[in-house]
Design a protein around this nucleic acid. Structure first.
Lengths: 211, 211, 211, 211
DNA sequence: TATGAATGAGAGTTCATTCAT
DNA sequence: TATGAATGAACTCTCATTCAT
């Protein structure tokens, strides 16, 4: 009985969290962190200010929770899809597809994510900066591991896995950000993915000697 | 005589501009645009508030002027070095070297530049957003032209020049940002450049058929 | 229950409005609109700045609300007293008495009212200027109507009602302002009213022919 | 020789004073005292800020000098015209005509003059307030003297000269202000003067017994 | 527990006045 | 003497956070 009640409570709190994060996502995406006020967030989420502050201890906390939640979601999707791929090449192509599709479904989030990918505004407050940074780092590590494994299995050249993964994400993010900004993307998700996959795997140089 | 005096005036105004921009660069880099106040900028530049406002009409104007000035400087360096290179491959390697060296000399600026590369916080205010965006666009166009020429001359594969250039800059920026953040870069400038150059030109896949 | 609470809220907000207006009245009267700061108003009303801004959206809004509230109050007194008078002459004498008594009770307000009667500082910002102007216009129209009726009923000469009403208020205001400024009015309210009434009704010329 | 040079100096200073006052008049009339800046005044008068401050020690000084200069001019016109009139009635009509004509020629000044007739914004700083007040007082006294003389000579009723003069100017000013505000005055100067003259001399009541 | 009014420090910007040139 | 750049206090208004109800 007590259990049931506390479970309902739990679920309610979760639902509230989501509603607030959802409202914040839209607003941050539209106006940026600093030009979005707590009154706006509370209003959009249909809660009183006090209620918002009961769930999140500050505006920054909302921002970071938003990043963490979505990053976690994306990370799990990445892991799932990568588990189904065998070779490093397939895994890398999977990462591209998953991220592109995710960006397409979460355009508001992605505008924030890419913009703040460096965590620049947060670097001072290291406690917050670190949490944001981890969101990026987890993905970079994930791909770095794939690269490392690919090298070991002879599928990939002997490159620096971390450096290459970092560059890979920069490539992806810059492309996706511009793509997300366009309201009517002229080119499809697929073609973008193919371009990036080829670029990352084979580069742009023309293979000169193919006897 | 009149000329001399007005020239000195001119130089003094320039010097003031630079001092303010320099102070702003440091502060924006450390705290971000919104957490840096005009009082701080004025104080760091050793001027009274009114003096700062005599030279820049708003805080945004300082920010944008900073971006424009440094971007222009970087752009000219890029053009100079590219003019001395013959092939597309050489030009691309030149871009990487120049940007890395520039980032190394302008660490504060680069933290701002990469952080805000998407211009996200500015997109709302289109007048300002456009000016920021142009700073990035000029570089993307520059490299896209190199790629186009390289394809025409048979040096590069038939890729989408704009898409590839965008990805190239994302790759560079993400790498440089992390590199700039490290106070004691363990790896040298050269090696970073080599890694990125190889990645962009040849990708990471192991060339399978080499009979 | 809900009703009671919301009613109390309503009353509290009203009380706050009044306290702020009251403080502003005193300060505007003493230092004028531009030399009175919001900090001073908030301080005098014993509220934090934010509270003042919750109730009035700007300093101008306070000023205009003050004018409108008091003007409305005066206007209603005028209407009441005029309703009890039969002839135009009686009505005009009633207007004089009511305005003098009101000015006596609201010395601070009257200093502002008369000073700014022309709305000069406001004419530029038409939106605000109009609201101020209406405060004066309503009274001028009121008296103009009385004059018109008086003419119709043969009590008054065939004069231009609007022009005469305007002059009438100028006469009243100038007299009242000086009177209000004197801390210890040497002459009584009554005698001032009589003088103005006679002046407006009969002029100052000696009726020459009275056979 | 020395005399000539110092005389020229004197004349130059006078010319500067006039240019500044002229510029200030236009600007104060358009935007009000507080919304007109010294930079604007200096710019409009084609002088450097320092030069303006060499001639007037503050913005307030410009304002008051402006009032004093024009008031003095008006006062002399009034004295001249009144000297040519014999009876009190003629003198009063002369005052009306002169003021109306002066207002017509000095519309900018009159907007300021009437708006600030009460000196309200200045009352705090008594030193300044007094100087402004004297500008009004001189006219009131002038007319009060005429009224006193008129009573002595049996032309006017036994009224309070000061009170009546004050009311007279209030009447005039309110009428003139509205008239000055209208860009295309529909009614002529003459007719306005007649209305005010009749009102002041005979009132609006219909003389009842005229056998 | 939920509310949202109250808080007040702090923001960007202006401008009367000064003073080195 | 004339200049106009430099000054910095003071302005209006915002908003993240708190807390009495």
């Amino acid at each position: 009985m007590m259990d049931q009640r506390s479970q309902r409570k739990q679920r309610e709190v979760e639902a509230r969290r989501d509603e607030i994060l959802c409202a914040a996502e839209r607003l941050f995406s539209k106006h940026g962190f600093f030009k979005t006020s707590m009154v706006e967030i509370a209003g959009a989420a249909q809660f009183a200010m006090g209620t918002v502050y009961r769930i999140f201890k500050s505006k920054e906390e909302i921002y970071i929770s938003l990043m963490e939640a979505k990053s976690e979601e994306l990370f799990q999707l990445l892991e799932e899809q990568m588990a189904q791929a065998d070779t490093a090449l397939e895994k890398i192509r999977a990462v591209i597809q998953v991220k592109l599709a995710f960006a397409d479904r979460n355009r508001d989030f992605f505008r924030i994510y890419v913009s703040e990918w460096s965590g620049f505004e947060w670097t001072v407050k290291s406690a917050f900066g670190n949490r944001i940074w981890k969101c990026y780092l987890s993905q970079i590590t994930l791909v770095a591991d794939v690269v490392r494994e690919g090298i070991r299995r002879g599928e990939l050249q002997r490159v620096d896995p971390e450096a290459v993964s970092l560059a890979f994400h920069g490539m992806l993010n810059s492309t996706m950000y511009v793509w997300v900004l366009q309201s009517n993307p002229s080119e499809s998700l697929e073609s973008k993915g193919k371009i990036l996959g080829n670029l990352f795997l084979n580069g742009i140089e023309k293979p000169i000697k193919k006897k």
